[in-house]
């Protein structure tokens, strides 16, 4: 039972993160933010700083959840400003640079092995409650996305993404629309990072490196861009694959778990991006 609970918690946290990457940043703006995992790292780092360095206790720990959202918003201004001038490849370059920079920041603040023994706030001490909180956040996001489908802004983002010149002619502030969604996506990712820090009680800088970022990008391509079902299935797939490999390779062979996961997702990335761009559930290509 514990096992199922931990799997579900992991699934919801990854689903929140993938939602922010897949359905908000890439889906609504069309910018390929490979280094989006940096905001996940910021959320986890801020939670660690609040609880381990500043020793917040009791209900004050909830501040970490909100604080990480605010800090993510502040840091999201970097890519949001960059889209003023850059697009395409150069946005990918900026994204990679930010990812490496944040990874170094995490290493500088928390040391090479990260924070440990991050306490959970009262009310979130059991795995069940953490699972409930993350599932509620995820459900809110899904609800929001399904309502947003019929909102005017959705049509505007479609125009902006597909034909920028047309959007400009129509008097839409292209830059404003795009940066709003980038900031929103980063904030969501920060919340997911904070939840992850509570879940695993630690922040390991190695979790935020470029390979992990590529794997998470592969999940987006696998599920299908801008599709909620795709996000759900991709994150379920990721959690399950990790679990299956861990139960196959026990003891000494556990070395192979992460490596085989990376190989699988590398192949999925190359395959799906080139031959299968709409993914499993997606309606449109990358």
């Amino acid at each position: 039972m514990d096992l199922l609970l931990s799997l579900l918690t992991k699934f919801f946290i990854y689903a929140i993160f993938l939602f922010s990457l897949n359905n908000i940043v890439i889906g609504k703006t069309g910018y390929w933010a490979i280094g989006h995992i940096a905001y996940f790292a910021i959320g986890a780092l801020f939670t660690g700083v609040i609880t381990v360095i500043f020793h917040f206790t009791g209900y004050y720990i909830y501040l970490a959840l909100f604080g990480s959202i605010i800090i993510s918003i502040i840091f999201s201004l970097i890519p949001a400003l960059s889209i003023l001038r850059l697009r395409g490849d150069f946005f990918i370059f900026v994204s990679i640079t930010i990812n490496e920079l944040i990874k170094l920041l995490v290493e500088l603040i928390s040391g090479p092995s990260g924070f440990s023994n991050i306490p959970r706030p009262p009310g979130l001490t059991t795995d069940l409650s953490l699972m409930c909180l993350s599932s509620i956040i995820f459900l809110i996001l899904v609800l929001y996305a399904s309502i947003f489908k019929y909102h005017n802004l959705n049509y505007i983002t479609t125009i902006v993404r597909q034909n920028e010149e047309l959007a400009k002619v129509m008097g839409i502030n292209v830059y404003y629309i795009r940066s709003i969604f980038i900031i929103l996506g980063c904030a969501t990712a920060g919340a997911a990072g904070s939840l992850f820090a509570f879940y695993s009680n630690s922040t390991d800088p190695q979790r935020f490196n470029i390979n992990e970022a590529v794997i998470l990008f592969a999940l987006c391509a696998f599920g299908g861009i801008d599709s909620i079902r795709g996000t759900i299935i991709a994150s379920m797939f990721y959690v399950l694959i990790l679990f299956v490999l861990e139960s196959i390779f026990k003891g000494l062979f556990q070395i192979y778990t992460t490596n085989i996961t990376s190989i699988i997702f590398g192949l999925i990335l190359i395959f799906s991006i080139n031959f299968f761009p709409q993914g499993i559930m997606g309606k449109r290509g990358l």
Binding site: G88, D89, N211, I263, G266
Partner: peptide, 25 residues
């Protein structure tokens, strides 16, 4: 070009994992 960048990242991840399986970390 963007697809090329992502593909090269995919190759990089695969190669690194293969090397760490064969030669250890």
């Amino acid at each position: 070009t963007s697809i090329l960048i992502i593909t090269s990242f995919g190759i990089s991840v695969i190669m690194q994992s293969l090397m760490s399986i064969i030669f250890t970390n």
